[in-house]
Design a protein around this nucleic acid. Sequence first.
DNA 1: TTCCTTGCAAACGATTTGCATTGGA
DNA 2: TCCAATGCAAATCGTTTGCAAGGAA
Lengths: 146, 146
Amino acid sequence: MTTSSVDREVQKRLGEHAIRYTTGRRAVVAALAGSDGPKSASELHGEIGSRVPLSSLYRSLTILEEAGVVIPHYGAKGLTRYELAEWLTGHHHHLVCLDCGAVEDVEIPGAQETQVRDLVDSISAIASFTPINHDLEVEGRCARCA
Amino acid sequence: MTTSSVDREVQKRLGEHAIRYTTGRRAVVAALAGSDGPKSASELHGEIGSRVPLSSLYRSLTILEEAGVVIPHYGAKGLTRYELAEWLTGHHHHLVCLDCGAVEDVEIPGAQETQVRDLVDSISAIASFTPINHDLEVEGRCARCA
DNA sequence: TTCCTTGCAAACGATTTGCATTGGA
DNA sequence: TCCAATGCAAATCGTTTGCAAGGAA
């Protein structure tokens, strides 16, 4: 999905919830749409520039999370990284680098995704757990840190 | 693996690294060995009692992590939860409750584990990523919160 | 003795919040 | 207009660290 169509989808979604799509929020969504993985508030602050203060950034992220536009991803050193929700980006999994903490998104072929989903369902049934989402996290070393 | 045999294994491992297996560290290992999922420092503090102050608990967890005895898991609200490493407990995956934040361990049948491992390898190869560990996280609602 | 470990309190860093001001529908 | 959103600074909260006291080899 292109950055501009993401922007349109988000605008629509926020409109339905009577939430304003302000300059600061647009900046966050644009930065995330151009990213290849989850980003922390301070990383976003670095990309967006200081015209949006950190506190506003956090507030934007909270609002966007409540609206289902972004999803939090909790990582090392108490850092929370956010990415666009899967209805905007498509379902994917994560490669987490144990050295630098970077997280990269990966999509997998449909046949394998089906395998994973079946597995998730059978695990959940045994544990009386109601699955909502799943994430196959591969931890290791990224190409840069290898 | 029983709590007492975990205790013995940990003692051996720490001995090899010339790290003392003190009362405080034993308390942490015992609490984790009796747990059905990762626990945060404050949760452990609640279980162990205030005879071990939080700061010592954090230091014990750091030492045990360096010795490869415990593994950190990063979760909601910047909480880090620890659990015994898989060489002590066996490989498993996680059910994460989106409501209460509790994390439950689940083991899956060997055949399915093999599927997951193959999948992890093929994903990693495509991304030039060196996989070290993997974790299929199922997010949803636990039996209590459903 | 000689280090490692512990307790306490102060320090830190990410995130949140109070409050007055600004801005968008 | 009028309430939601913002900016700033102060407050929180999990976690880390400095330092002096305690404990094991």
